[in-house]
Simulated scan of single mutants.
Amino acid sequence: MSSTTTSPRRALVIGASRGLGLVLADELVRRDWQVTATVRADGDELRAMARRSGGRLTVESLEMTSAEDLASLRKHLAGTRLDLLFVNAAIDRGNLPIDQVPTEMFTEVMVTNAFSPMRALEALRELVAPGGTVAVMSSDQGSISRNTEGGYELYKASKAALNQLMRSYTTRHADDAHTKLLIDPGHNRTRLGGFDAPLAPEESIPSVVDVLEAQAGAPGLQFLDLNGEVVPW
């Protein structure tokens, strides 16, 4: 009698030192994915998780805003075939009206929240197998049609810019056979979301992974929430 073995699904999670990215890496490991996750200077909790994972989680250092770091990671992972590339990155510098935002702050937030995630996708997309998924953590704060309440103008603008850039990415790479997703994980209790938010990452991220797994192989770009519902642009 012959038997066959199935290779584990492979994921690369960019930005997993804490918060949503950390829980995402953990949830994928729980579902028997083989996961590589990146951290910046910190990452003790992720590294401890890797030691407990039985080899299913490995950790790489990456400063996502550095083109040199991205190129180095791409070279290091050459030959790896990913089923999922997930980019998670966001900062918030407070609730200032846009006319009060210093130029340096505007640049920092836009580079971190919009430009760098897209540059990461471009640098690493060739590692994703045909039929695999490229996904970016977005927010309903980036929905223009839902922007009916004041506040957090720079953060909202950065996520709207991210969504628009992902549209352009999809147009340029329409024939690459990758599923493309923008994910709104809901309002979570993290350093970014605040500790009075209604959701815990341990509640929302399993639903996010359900969406990622359910959408695998779907064509085009979708902007979806943690329940798989369409978020309006």
Results as ranks from 00 to 15, higher is better:
residue 4 T to I: 05
residue 13 V to P: 04
residue 15 G to T: 03
residue 19 G to L: 07
residue 23 V to N: 05
residue 28 L to A: 05
residue 28 L to V: 03
residue 29 V to R: 12
residue 30 R to Q: 14
residue 30 R to F: 00
residue 34 Q to Y: 01
residue 41 A to R: 15
residue 51 R to T: 13
residue 51 R to H: 06
residue 58 T to Q: 12
residue 61 S to C: 10
residue 65 T to R: 14
residue 66 S to E: 08
residue 69 D to E: 10
residue 74 R to Y: 01
residue 76 H to G: 06
residue 78 A to S: 13
residue 78 A to E: 15
residue 79 G to F: 08
residue 84 L to S: 03
residue 91 I to G: 07
residue 94 G to M: 09
residue 98 I to T: 09
residue 99 D to K: 09
residue 102 P to L: 08
residue 103 T to G: 10
residue 106 F to S: 00
residue 109 V to F: 07
residue 109 V to E: 13
residue 112 T to M: 10
residue 124 L to A: 07
residue 133 T to C: 10
residue 134 V to H: 02
residue 141 Q to A: 15
residue 143 S to C: 11
residue 144 I to K: 06
residue 146 R to H: 12
residue 154 L to S: 02
residue 159 K to T: 03
residue 163 N to T: 06
residue 166 M to T: 13
residue 168 S to A: 14
residue 171 T to K: 11
residue 179 T to V: 05
residue 180 K to R: 15
residue 182 L to W: 09
residue 182 L to G: 07
residue 182 L to H: 11
residue 184 D to Y: 11
residue 186 G to Y: 03
residue 186 G to F: 07
residue 189 R to F: 01
residue 197 A to M: 06
residue 199 L to T: 07
residue 212 L to M: 09
residue 220 G to Y: 07
residue 222 Q to A: 15
residue 224 L to R: 10
residue 229 E to Q: 15
residue 231 V to H: 05
